[in-house]
Design a protein around this nucleic acid. Structure first.
Lengths: 153, 153
DNA sequence: CCGTCATCGTTTCACTCCCAAACTATATAA
DNA sequence: TTATATAGTTTGGGAGTGAAACGATGACGG
């Protein structure tokens, strides 16, 4: 088997191990992608999810993103401080907030999405377009075949 | 696209995101695999790597596994306390240890390897044998196409 | 209307994990 | 011998996480 850049663990030949390492690699890559936008990948996901939901409460965001609600508090705090999101009370249920991305956040999201697209191209440069499609499909099927990792549902 | 069990993030359609989640999933699955053996996946990797090297020093194990040397100290400490590894001074270089798995560790490794094989079958149950092979190969190519995530080389 | 219970957001605490820096013992080279 | 480098260790700070408790609000049954 091939073994170019230091992947010489006995576990190298197991597929599960490769998936774990590949996940770490992708994680590191995405972190680097968002650095120029001055946001973390977590923040990007929160904003992205909030922008796609009608009246996102912190609880709903927690559930969707698999993040503990008490962590979401700090996440939204930071977004507010950076002027990327606002907390408005939900008039239908005054316990809940509606987390709303600001216009500044919308602009950053737009730019970030383009960066993600570029980064993906680069990340998968070693694979043909067709192979990436296969990987995409297999990953999706594998994920949906398993119960979710996180709680907070 | 399909969307069975709560994977309804806007990022769901990006391959990188799927790889991250898949890595987390695999991580959780392997942790569960080793629980009956009373070891962590980290410990398994250390023992497995040590068993495959002629005179493994802690530094070498750190490099191979991508773990900080000062973390390796605690890892080996735990293994010693559990009677799974011994530290012997390397007579060629008395600064170094030779980390040697005990017989108990060898037995556990053997058993654990079988568990891993079973777990992989289960984990990839949603895919055909051929598809798993494809995933294996693509993952490998992708990993070797990137510089390693970790330092300590 | 009122009391009870559930839910949302929040705070706090304990715990783990990681990295950087300093320290020791030993090895290597001038 | 002296100076420098390396292996292993210890320590401290910072980040992330989960459990528990709390105040505010809502839902519901009497």
């Amino acid at each position: 088997m091939e073994n170019a850049a230091g992947w010489d663990t006995p576990m190298w030949h197991t597929t599960g191990f490769r998936l774990i390492k590949l996940g770490e690699l992708a994680q590191a890559a995405t972190a680097a992608v968002f650095a120029p936008q001055q946001i973390t990948s977590r923040q990007f996901h929160v904003l992205s999810a909030a922008a796609s939901m009608p009246t996102p409460s912190q609880k709903e965001l927690s559930r969707v993103l698999g993040v503990d609600p008490n962590v979401m508090v700090g996440l939204i705090d930071d977004l507010e401080e950076q002027g990327l999101a606002r907390r408005e009370r939900n008039p239908r249920d005054r316990r809940r907030y509606i987390v709303t991305p600001t216009e500044k956040a919308e602009r950053i999201l737009e730019e970030a999405r383009r960066s993600v697209a570029r980064a993906e191209e680069e990340f998968f440069a070693a694979l043909s377009e067709q192979e990436v499609a296969v990987l995409h499909e297999l990953s999706g099927r594998l994920l949906t075949s398993h119960p979710r990792v996180t709680k907070y549902e």
